[in-house]
C-alpha cells in the first residue's frame, strides 16, 4: 500500500501491519506504540462504550469470582481470606456438590457431543438439497432452539396423569398399565432431560455449519472425485471437514458453553430440587448457595470450577479438531 507513504509527517492513518513509516526505525518500541495509540485514538473512543459495559458485566464478575473463591463472603461482612478452604470443602465435605459435579459431567458429555454431532450431520445431509428445500428443513430443525420457552410443551406431552400425550398413548397401546410421573421418576428424568436439551440445542452451531458447508467450493469435490474418493464418508473426512475447521471450532465453543450451562430446563420441568437430586447440576448448586444461602465465597468457587471445566473441554476439543482430515 504505497498510499501510506504520501503524507508521512502528519497523521498517518495506515493500519499497523503494512509498510511502517520511515521514522519507525528511529523509535523505540514504546515510542512507536505511543505514536500508534495517538494516531488511532478515535478507535479507542469507538470501543469505549462497549468496553465499559463489557468490563462491568463480564470481566469484573469473572475477576470477582476468582478472588472471592478464596474467601468466605456473605455480602454483609467484609470478605475473609480462607485460602483453599472452599475447594477442600467442595470435594471432601459436600456430598451434594459431588452429585452435582457428576450430573453435570453426565449431561455435558451426552448433550454436548450429541448436539454437536447432530448439528453437523444434519447440516451435512441437507447441504445437497435444493435451496428452497434446504431453507425449509433448516427452519424445522432450528425452530425449537429459537422458540424461547417452547420446551414447556413437554409438560403437556409428559404430563403425569392419563391426559398426558405419552401416558395416554402408551396405555392405549397396552405398554404400561398406570400413568408414569415422568418428571418425578428418577429413571426417566435424566434421559428425558438429555433428549429435551438436545431438542432445543440445534441453534447457532447448526447455522454456522450450514453456512460453512455452503462456502466450500464445489470444484474441490469434483477434484476429489477425480482423485479417487470413493464415497461420501471419505469425501467428508478429506475435503469437507478440513475446509470448515474454523466453523467446527466456533460450533464447539457454543456447544460446550451450552452443555455446561445446562440446568434451566430441569428447573422449569422438574422443579428444584428434582427427585432425590437426580438431575441436580452445578448450576443448581451455584444458584442454591448464591440465592438461598448467601455464601458468595463458596458459590464463586463453584463458578470457577465450572469455568475450568468448560475451558478444559474447549482445549480438548481444539486438540481433537486439529487431527481432523489426517
Amino acid at each position: 500500500m504505497q498510499e501510506t507513504a504520501v503524507k508521512p509527517g502528519k497523521k498517518l492513518k495506515a493500519p499497523k501491519e503494512p509498510k511502517k513509516p520511515v521514522s519507525r526505525k528511529e523509535m523505540t518500541k514504546w515510542q512507536y506504540t505511543k505514536a500508534e495509540m495517538k494516531r488511532t485514538r478515535v478507535g479507542y473512543l469507538m470501543i469505549l462504550p462497549f468496553m465499559i459495559m463489557f468490563l462491568v458485566f463480564t470481566v469484573l464478575p469473572v475477576i470477582l469470582s476468582i478472588l472471592l473463591s478464596f474467601t468466605s463472603f456473605n455480602m454483609f461482612q467484609f470478605p475473609k481470606w480462607i485460602f483453599f478452604d472452599n475447594y477442600i470443602r467442595m470435594f471432601l465435605d459436600d456430598d451434594l456438590f459431588i452429585t452435582a459435579f457428576k450430573n453435570t459431567m453426565i449431561f455435558a458429555v451426552t448433550t454436548g457431543p450429541a448436539s454437536y454431532l447432530l448439528s453437523f450431520l444434519l447440516a451435512w445431509f441437507i447441504n445437497e438439497l435444493p435451496p428452497k428445500a434446504r431453507a425449509f428443513v433448516t427452519f424445522i430443525f432450528y425452530a425449537p432452539s429459537i422458540s424461547g420457552s417452547a420446551y414447556t410443551i413437554f409438560t403437556i406431552i409428559f404430563r403425569g396423569d392419563i391426559y398426558g400425550l405419552a401416558n395416554g398413548w402408551l396405555m392405549k397401546l397396552g405398554l404400561i398399565n398406570d400413568p408414569i410421573l415422568w418428571f418425578q421418576n428418577e429413571t426417566y428424568i435424566v434421559p428425558l432431560m438429555i433428549f429435551i436439551s438436545v431438542w432445543t440445542s440445534l441453534g447457532m452451531t447448526f447455522l454456522a455449519f450450514i453456512a460453512g458447508l455452503q462456502g466450500i467450493d464445489r470444484s474441490q469435490y469434483e477434484a476429489g472425485a477425480v482423485d479417487g474418493i470413493k464415497n461420501r464418508w471419505q469425501e467428508a473426512w478429506y475435503i469437507t471437514l478440513p475446509n470448515m475447521k474454523s466453523m467446527l471450532m466456533f460450533g464447539a465453543v457454543l456447544a460446550i458453553t451450552g452443555a455446561f450451562g445446562f440446568g434451566a430446563i430441569v428447573t422449569a420441568l422438574c422443579g428444584t430440587p428434582s427427585t432425590n437430586y437426580c438431575a441436580w447440576t452445578l448450576n443448581h448448586h451455584l444458584a442454591e448457595y448464591m440465592g438461598t444461602r448467601f455464601e458468595f465465597g463458596y458459590a464463586s468457587a463453584i463458578a470457577l470450577i465450572m469455568f475450568i471445566l468448560s475451558f478444559g473441554a474447549n482445549q480438548l476439543v481444539n486438540k481433537i479438531l486439529a487431527k481432523v482430515g489426517q
Partner: peptide, 30 residues
C-alpha cells in the same frame, strides 16, 4: 482501525463466548 491492544481485546471477546451466563450471573447481582 486496529489500535494497539486490539489483539488482547479480540481474544477476551473470544474467551467470553466460553463463559456461560451462570458464571457471570453470580456477581452481576452484587
Amino acid at each position: 482501525i486496529r489500535m494497539p491492544g486490539y489483539k488482547v481485546i479480540n481474544s477476551m471477546i473470544k474467551y467470553s463466548l466460553m463463559i456461560g451466563s451462570t458464571i457471570t450471573g453470580t456477581y452481576n447481582f452484587i
